[in-house]
Design a protein around this nucleic acid. Structure first.
Length: 286
DNA sequence: CTGGCTCCCTGAATGC
DNA sequence: TGCATTCAGGGAGCCA
């Protein structure tokens, strides 16, 4: 399931391929995909928009367009890929954007100028999402979608001091707090379990009981885990395959019954905040 | 403020 | 073998 490192990987792959291209038209194959605006308005508005920048905020993929932002949340099973148009769909394709060739000029009916150039190598940007949880927004004011997100854990604002203040301003179980996108943006189930194990902290520990040293460990662990995830191009599990390798280096996630890489104790799976949670009962004592 | 629960949805795993 | 049931998971929304 795409978390910060997976979305970052997708963003880095797409960025050089998409920059400067213009969206010719949109085909919405499942209307529920479009969170905002209406499908009708979405289709009309996005045509003719040029892709100016590709980036990420939390787990959102962001395509900065001429006048709008296209925000994509992959949730569980979403994937975005550039595909050469062959007229065929894949199962679970939800949204298809027709693009000009790299550096190509817009040729939108009613907007573009000049005759259609059939030799142009056009592409399609496809949002494929098995479980239909993913959503897409097209907005002039992205803060309406992203405004409540917490800081980027790999950004400058995310310091050990900030984290200490944050966990002590609340009284919450550690894991649900780390998963709360309004607290920190980008952590999901995998990286939270991995970071807590690296920091030797129990997921049920109450946030405002953390010592200074524990907060520093947690801060370092979050950053180290996310950086390793990005370095390995994310984790490739479920139906989303990105060529990532991090799934082969999990310390605890999805490893119940197997030995802890640190101490050899058998890893246990429990449920915390309705989420499957994996810990080493020796390294992460409550 | 906090946590628990449900819902959305599909495919893999499990049960009979 | 085949059909039915269960479960996972990100985030919104609801309730206590």
């Amino acid at each position: 399931m795409p978390e910060l490192p997976e979305v970052e990987t997708i963003s880095r792959i797409l960025r050089p391929k998409l920059m400067g291209r213009t969206i010719l038209s949109a085909q919405v194959r499942w209307s529920g995909t479009i969170a905002f605006p209406s499908v009708r308005t979405f289709r009309r508005t996005i045509a003719g928009q040029q892709i100016r920048e590709v980036g990420r905020r939390g787990k959102f993929l962001r395509l900065q367009l001429s006048e709008y932002d296209l925000l994509i949340h992959l949730r569980m099973s979403g994937d975005v890929e550039l595909r050469e148009p062959n007229g065929r769909f894949k199962l679970h394709d939800r949204l298809i954007l027709r693009l000009t060739a790299r550096g190509g000029r817009a040729n939108v009916p009613g907007i573009g100028r000049g005759p259609r150039n059939r030799r142009e190598s056009k592409s399609t940007l496809v949002f494929n999402d098995t479980r239909k949880f993913g959503r897409v927004w097209l907005t002039r004011n992205m803060d309406e979608v992203l405004g409540r997100l917490g800081p980027e854990p790999l950004g400058r604002a995310f310091t050990a001091d900030w984290l200490y203040e944050g966990v002590h301003a609340r009284r919450r179980q550690l894991k649900p707090l780390l998963l709360d996108q309004a607290f920190i943006a980008g952590l999901g189930n995998i990286y939270t379990d991995e970071a807590l194990h690296l920091a030797k902290l129990h997921p049920l520990k109450i946030s405002n009981t953390l010592s200074r040293a524990q907060v520093v460990r947690l801060h370092d662990a979050i950053r180290a885990t996310l950086r390793e995830g990005i370095r390995r191009n994310g984790a490739s599990i479920d139906w989303v395959y990105r060529g990532g390798d991090f799934q082969n280096h999990f310390r605890v996630y999805d490893r119940a019954g197997q030995p802890c890489p640190v101490c050899g104790t058998t890893i246990v799976r429990l449920v915390v905040g309705q989420r499957g949670t994996h810990i080493c009962p020796h390294c992460q004592r409550g």
